[in-house]
Nucleic acid binder design. Structure first.
Length: 739
RNA sequence: GCGGGAUUAGCUCAGUUGGUACGAGCGGCGCUUUUACACAGCGAAGGUCGCAGGUUCGACCCCUGCAUCCCGCACCA
């Protein structure tokens, strides 16, 4: 119709031809970096800030739909803040994800018939690093394809040099304050991964099991039940309820069992309130070395702990029948022995929840081991004598940190109440090495200090490799690495330069927002609050926004290890365009609720992008003439304010739907139609189009930026990239996110 | 066992402080090849808002109980 129009506008909107070019335009502008925005006069140097870290994806492979959702929501927040003229920083990075990455590489090695021990620590780590680097590059590329306006100049990695300094500094401070201790305790041992894991890394699976009821010997007065007969060779007591009439008379007595399948046992009968009279036989065989609960009972009664299972889930006691054999095999052996000796009284089917390791799937074997722990209950003098637990609890309770949706606060509090000391050491190679150094056993005194070697420090926690003052003996570093969440816990400030007191740290911390999946509430959120409260004496972020899990259209979980069954966001983008995927992920997606991603929805929003394209073609074809129609302007302003309020309150699902609905069904279907037979509408149409593009931009950045670029320059003063145009409405509230 | 969430159109979901359900996407029905756009327009259909009580002038929305599904956490030996 009009030869003035750009040629591409005459064809349907083609996201493929557009998106890469537009992203490059944004990236080249430098506006992802708030410093550049200030330099170029886009934002004021003293503007309010909006800062957020990207939850660093694990360097274990590709980005999946879960990541895509995260990038979309966060990009919307960031684009909105930037358009409001805030000093906006969205800081990218990746996570070394210690166990996850190491076990992935181990699996790859297995295909070559290799084990990590064949390579040795150094060579193996080189392999892991190579793999991590490749994953990292894939992830960064994908994030760019998603249109994420991350400040790549500030990119960080949880295991890079700067973050290593932060980790060591944090460890040392905690150690010096007595919050980190080396302790011999029952830990969760992963026999497959050959490492300890924390309570949160256990996944409980319901399985069928057999409950055996038996006596240790014919003379033993009390029957007990167990699902794990093989551990019974480690029993040192039988616990009954102190008020149980049946057993009261035995309490305090000790029985010697000369032969329990080749093992000698000494069993004391004890009374403990924790035993339930009505469960099973009302008596509990106590295995202090291989059960968390039993260990606690043993502690109360000062019982001996006898380890009978080793790190490979093999028996360490008994004769050839059980010694060195696997626990599963020995279970059968013991049961048969009980049968042969007429000691087995009952055998019944039950279901039980078996603890398995999140990453390797192995059944957890509780074992006593010497490990490093963080004490969550110790009072900290420099923090008004509060414990880490209290430091985690308070900011949420007092509303300094807001959680959206709110009901996750309860989940958070509940977790803290049940929290035990955090085991932070791992017997794996990939990760931050524990900064603890041990003095060689034999001293080689320095000249003149021959009589002072008793002053040599045997254990030193240090950022640098220590040198002994009195002798020439070397220090060897602890072999273990740290739980990956230790370094993740520092993320909001380690990325801003801490422990250095940088300008970034002053400007952007506490961060404004932390957006992530609710599955990370304990692993990550709680640990960040702990670390920030303790190390910086401030909260890590003011708001938490939890998104739901992404599921397939039939409700299957997509984010974790579904492999090729999961929808690849990049394929969807190639088919329908980035803007369409973004809209499908946002409209109707309330915080915290799972999102069923349906390709049909995406197709619908692709049509909308095209609709917007055609609206623009029409408007650009008319004269910008006449006065602004007051009624339409009022209507528009009222909608704009409403949408702005939604943005401020993080109701993106509503804001997106409202602007969508207005543009299509009000502006296109009614206003434009009416304008066709009414003169002097041009100026109004331009006004609505330009402002609609602004309001749509956080949601559909590509198509809006592309159209923006085609709008006639003379119609606007100082036309910039739409990405940094001013949002046309003032904040609806004084402070963001207040209710 | 403790805690949380869900239950609204055929399907997937919105519905912000209680005021006749504004609804969206997809699907289905009828009409329209003319219009910036058939990746479209117009029109109509479709809901006793899980069930039972209660509060209220008025409830999808608040309270109580129940049912079904989902998700955390804990766990019995």
């Amino acid at each position: 119709m009009d030869e003035k129009l750009p040629e591409k506008l005459l064809r349907p909107y083609n996201p493929k031809e557009t998106e890469e070019r537009i992203y490059k335009l944004w990236e080249d502008s430098g506006f992802f970096n708030p410093d550049v925005c200030i330099e170029k006069g886009i934002i004021k140097a003293d503007a309010e800030h909006f800062s957020m870290v990207l939850p660093p994806p694990n360097v274990t492979g590709n980005l999946h739909t879960g990541h895509a959702l995260m990038l979309v929501i966060e990009d919307i927040m960031v684009r909105y803040a930037r358009m409001q003229g805030k000093k906006t920083l969205w800081l990218p990075g990746t996570d070394h994800a210690a166990i996850a990455t190491q076990s992935k590489v181990e699996k790859l090695l297995e295909k070559e018939g290799l084990k990590k021990k064949d390579l040795g620590r150094e060579e193996f780590l080189k392999r892991v690093e190579k793999f991590a680097k490749e994953s990292h590059d894939t992830i960064v590329n994908q994030a760019k394809k998603m249109g994420a306006t991350l400040d790549w100049s500030r990119e960080a990695f949880t295991l890079d040099e700067a973050r290593n300094v932060a980790v060591k500094t944090a460890f040392k401070k905690m150690y010096d304050d007595g919050l980190i201790y080396h302790g011999h305790r029952i830990v969760n041992w992963d026999p497959k991964g050959q490492t300890v894991i924390s309570d949160d890394e256990i996944v409980y699976e319901e399985r069928k099991a057999k409950l055996y009821t038996f006596k240790y010997s014919v003379d033993f007065p009390i029957s007990i039940s167990t699902t794990r007969p093989e551990t019974k060779v480690g029993d040192t007591a039988v616990a009954v309820h102190p008020e149980d009439a049946r057993y009261k008379k035995y309490i305090g007595k000790t029985y010697n069992i000369e032969d329990f399948c080749g093992v000698k046992l000494e069993i004391k009968i004890i009374g403990d309130e924790s035993v339930e009279k009505d469960f099973g036989t009302g008596a509990l065989g106590v295995t202090p070395a291989h059960s968390q609960i039993d260990s606690e009972i043993a502690g109360r009664h000062k019982l001996e702990s006898k380890q009978v299972i080793n790190e490979f889930a093999k028996m360490t006691v008994g004769d050839e029948r059980i010694l060195n054999k696997k626990t599963t095999e020995v279970r059968e052996t013991i049961v048969n022995w009980l049968k042969e000796n007429n000691l087995l009284e009952k055998e019944e089917e039950t279901t039980q929840n078996v603890g398995t390791a999140e990453r390797t799937g192995a059944i957890i074997e509780p074992l006593p081991k010497l490990q490093w722990f963080i004490d969550v209950n110790k009072k900290i003098p420099s923090r008004k004598n509060k414990s880490l637990k209290e430091l985690m609890f308070e900011p949420v309770k007092e509303g300094k940190i807001k959680i959206i949706p709110e009901h996750f606060e309860k989940v958070y509090f509940n977790w803290i109440e049940n929290l035990r000391d955090w085991c932070i050491s791992r017997q794996i190679w990939y990760g931050h090495r524990i900064p603890v150094w041990y003095h060689e056993p034999i001293c080689i005194p320095k000249t003149g200090k021959e009589d002072q070697t008793d002053k040599c420090k045997k254990t030193v926690v240090s950022i640098e490799k220590p040198i002994c003052e009195y002798c020439d003996a070397k220090y060897e570093q602890d072999e273990d690495t740290l739980d990956t969440w230790f370094s993740s816990g520092l993320w909001t400030f380690s990325t801003l330069g801490w422990p250095k007191q940088t300008k970034d740290l002053k400007t952007f911390h506490p961060t404004s927002m932390l957006e992530t999946g609710h599955d990370l509430i304990f692993f990550w959120i709680a640990r960040m609050i702990l670390m920030s409260q303790y190390l910086l004496n401030e909260i890590p972020f003011e708001n938490i926004y939890f998104h739901g899990m992404v599921r397939t259209a039939d409700g299957k979980k997509m984010s974790k290890s579904l492999g090729d069954k999961a929808i690849d966001p990049l394929i969807i983008i190639a088919k329908y365009g980035n803007d369409a995927l973004r809209m499908a992920m946002i409209v109707g997606n309330t915080p915290g609720k799972d999102l069923k991603l349906d390709e049909n929805d995406v197709r619908g929003y692709k049509n909308f992008a095209n609709k917007l394209w055609n609206i623009s073609r029409y408007v650009l074809g008319v004269e910008r003439s006449g006065e602004l129609k007051k009624e339409l302007l009022d209507e528009w302003n009222s909608l704009g304010k409403d949408i702005t309020a939604d943005m401020e309150n993080l109701r993106f699902y509503l804001a997106a739907e409202k602007i969508y609905h207005y543009v299509w069904h009000r502006f296109a279907d009614e206003i434009i139609e009416k304008s066709k037979d009414t003169p002097e509408y041009g100026a109004t149409l331009y006004h609505i189009l330009e402002n609609s593009l602004k309001l749509l931009h956080p949601f559909m950045p590509f198509v809006t930026e592309e159209i923006w670029g085609m709008l006639p320059v003379e119609s606007m003063e100082n036309k910039k990239l739409l990405m940094v145009e001013k949002w046309p409405f003032e904040s609806a509230f004084g402070k963001p996110y207040d209710k």
